[in-house]
Design a protein around this nucleic acid. Structure first.
Length: 707
DNA sequence: GTGCCTCGAGTTCC
DNA sequence: CTCGAGGCAC
């Protein structure tokens, strides 16, 4: 790229350079998105893009049809290809107190049926404050490295991972398939040196070692990553073709033997007291370590037990992270703003004088709700000793779980004179409708419904969000823009699917707008078109009905199967009762509150009409109950009774559900199978009366043994 | 009725 | 990530 100042370019030079820049940026984009090695750095990419824009501003008539300025979503941060994890990368549940730790020990024992006095081993290791990485080795060769991402899908950073010294490129004596997981981090000393160097060069400095490690790993140019002093500790694994060892501690040793760095402060402990002792020992060393840690992780040592314990929706039952107390900071509360959510909830947000806490500058913090500001909890009890929060107050903030800033305390001694308790608004700041608090509800909600623009926009954002329609090129920012657009508005979900038709009829085309070009407009329309065909569960979730999230939407979709059955059921049911209502409540996981929310939504004329307009635009795919391949209990209703000797209730239930069965608590005509252990009483008798199939615990295990 | 366990909703920062 | 609420087992 030429260095000649934009101001002094002749028109011919400008035309030629726009061509070169367009070519360069297009190639760079392709390289980022595809398999090719990226060939220019973040900084060069940005510089080229800025120069391109500057030239276009000076010579608007030279702007090309394929101008890189119009390529929406080509930001470098979206540049890595996606990798689906074959074994999910879970997060960990957190513990903050000794009590949480003994709860964890108790829960594990009760799930497994291990008596309190029987020793149960755990590993305890420091929790490194970096970013997790999964390394896939096949036949001893590193073939792929991926970040955690959302746990299911991460980013491919293989080229960058290869440059890290602690990550072996080949392994000897490893299983054919081995996914090693661990933490990429930067030592404190290296972080300080890097920041000095960056500063000297006029580059950007990082707020903390964690950000520096994250920023370095996600460089588009692996040569930059190679230049950054990243390190890696291995502490877990994903897919393996053969077991590494019978225990967690032995598996970690095996990883060390294979050539990985493992943390030297890892210990084996057997009681909550020992866990606490090791926690305090590590905490005492924290300041002298050369890397940041934010707690201690405990894992059940025996891998067979880990497998029995299994997973909750996002976390394993066999591990927990014991976090160090959060860092605190004092600052002044400048204002309280009210945000309106998609359900109309009025949420107060604290605007703070910027303050550094936990290595990050914080200027906003959540204030939860009315009661939290007033110093009351939801049951009318006191929090912060009953101290209320006022504008102008000095407040103590911390980052809960090291992420979300919260206001913890108020310094009454520094309270300015003449302050008043904060008067929570009784009307929606966005639409002026009355905001009311229902009996027993902690939040105040705007009653404006679809009239309220804030609610409408938030609902639309939810509609296009990840678990819902997830339309490429139509994110929160675009929704905001289209909602306020007079030429081509999106005011309700159905409008999204008429966008292309309306654009075709309009005089001002989307492709001629700021921020859009021929290509990006076409991409958006294609992205929308792609989602016209969509599974029922996503549609139900996308509607954004209160209390109906992803999980409830799945249950409903599975139960009703197709859109017309679902809609007929929702419009036919009334909270007063009747067969449609009873059927709704019979779904495991759907209670009266969810049912009422669903039914009242479909009863409101305007909501109903809006939903109908949407459905008319879509090709909604039916959802089949998950056919668990070859499972003899798929779709069956199973009841466990009596004493189970080889597994606990919770375990039996989790296992049965994983095989597609529904587990009920009591025997009824709908029960398909009763698993009766010794001491089975009335349930066994009732099952016999109803002629329901019965097996004992061994019979059950035999039934599912091949799965 | 009480006490788990999960899910849903709202939120921050880079 | 956290809090509150919903659902369900005991």
């Amino acid at each position: 790229m030429s260095d000649k100042p934009v101001d002094s370019l002749t028109k011919d030079e400008a035309r030629a350079e726009l061509g070169r820049l367009s070519d360069l940026l297009t190639k760079a984009n392709t390289a980022y998105h595809g398999e090719d090695a990226p060939f220019i750095s973040d900084a060069d990419y940005d510089a080229a893009k800025r120069r391109n824009a500057a030239i276009e501003t000076r010579f608007p008539d030279l702007k090309r049809d394929d101008s890189p300025t119009d390529q929406v979503g080509a930001a470098p941060s979206e540049a890595f290809s996606k990798v689906r994890h074959r074994v999910r990368m879970m997060s960990l549940a957190n513990a903050f107190s000794e009590e949480d730790i003994s709860d964890f020990d108790r829960q594990v024992r009760s799930f497994l049926g291990v008596a309190p006095d029987t020793p149960l081993a755990f590993t305890a290791e420091p929790k490194i404050d970096g970013l997790s990485l999964s390394l896939r080795y096949e036949k001893g060769k590193l073939i792929e490295a991926a970040t955690r991402g959302d746990g299911a899908e991460g980013e491919n950073v293989t080229a960058n991972a290869r440059t890290i010294d602690d990550i072996p490129v080949t392994l000897t004596g490893a299983p054919d398939v081995l996914e090693v997981r661990g933490e990429v981090y930067m030592s404190r000393a290296d972080f300080a040196t890097l920041n000095d160097r960056q500063q000297a060069r006029g580059g950007k400095t990082f707020a903390n070692p964690r950000n520096a490690a994250a920023g370095s790993l996600r460089q588009l140019d692996p040569r930059i990553t190679a230049d950054r002093p990243l390190k890696f500790f291995a502490y877990a694994w994903g897919e393996v073709s053969e077991p590494l060892a019978p225990t967690q501690s032995a598996a970690i040793e095996r990883l060390r033997d294979l050539g990985f760095q493992t943390n030297p402060l890892t210990r084996r402990v057997t009681t909550p007291d020992e866990m606490m002792a090791h926690y305090h020992a590590i905490e005492a060393q924290r300041a002298t370590l050369d890397y940041d840690i934010d707690g201690v992780v405990y894992k059940v040592d025996d891998l067979a037990l880990q497998q029995r314990l299994g997973f909750r929706s996002t976390t394993p039952r066999w591990a927990i992270a014991h976090k160090f107390p959060a860092e605190l900071a004092w600052t002044q509360l400048e204002a309280i703003d009210i945000q309106v959510g998609r359900t109309g909830a009025l949420s107060p947000v604290a605007r703070l004088a910027p303050v550094t806490v936990g290595g990050v500058v914080v200027s906003n913090a959540t204030l939860h709700n009315e009661d939290y500001i007033a110093g009351r909890d939801s049951k009318g009890g006191e929090i912060r000793g009953g101290k209320d929060i006022r504008i102008g107050d000095w407040v103590q903030v911390y980052r809960a779980g090291d992420v979300i800033p919260k206001v913890a305390d108020v310094d009454l001694a520094k309270r300015p004179e003449g302050t008043e308790p904060y008067a929570f608004p009784t009307h929606c700041p966005e639409c002026g409708s009355k905001a009311i608090r229902e009996e027993g509800d902690a939040v105040r909600r705007c009653t404006g419904g679809m009239i309220c623009p804030a609610q409408a926009v938030e609902k639309l954002k939810h509609f296009v969000s990840r678990g819902a329609f997830d339309i490429e090129g139509l994110g929160a920012r675009q929704i905001e823009m289209f909602y306020h657009d007079d030429q081509l508005p999106i005011r309700e979900p159905a409008d999204i699917f008429t966008l292309a038709t309306r654009d075709a009829e309009n005089l001002t085309k989307l492709r001629n707008r700021d921020g859009y070009g021929e290509k990006s407009a076409a991409n958006l329309f294609a992205g929308i078109e792609e989602r016209r065909q969509i599974p029922l569960n996503r549609v139900i979730f996308a509607l954004g009905i209160r209390h109906v999230g992803e999980s409830a939407a799945n249950l409903l979709a599975r139960h009703y199967g197709d859109w017309s059955s679902f809609e007929t059921a929702m419009t036919g049911a009334t909270p007063e009762g009747g067969s449609a209502w009873d059927e709704l409540l019979s779904i495991d996981g759907i209670g009266a509150v969810m049912a009422t929310s669903l039914v009242t939504t479909f009863q409101q004329e305007n909501e109903r009409a809006s939903i109908d307009r949407l459905a008319a635009q879509l090709d909604i795919q039916p959802v089949e109950a998950p056919r668990t391949e070859g499972s003899p209990v798929a779709g069956k209703t199973v009841v466990f009774t009596g004493t189970l000797e080889k597994m606990t209730r919770a375990e039996a239930k989790a296992r049965a559900e994983a095989l597609g069965a529904k587990v009920a608590g009591s025997v009824s005509a709908k029960t398909d199978l009763l698993v009766a252990g010794p001491g089975a009483g009335s349930k066994a008798k009732k099952a016999a009366d109803l002629g329901i199939e019965m097996v004992d615990e061994d019979g059950w295990l035999d039934l599912i043994k091949d799965l």
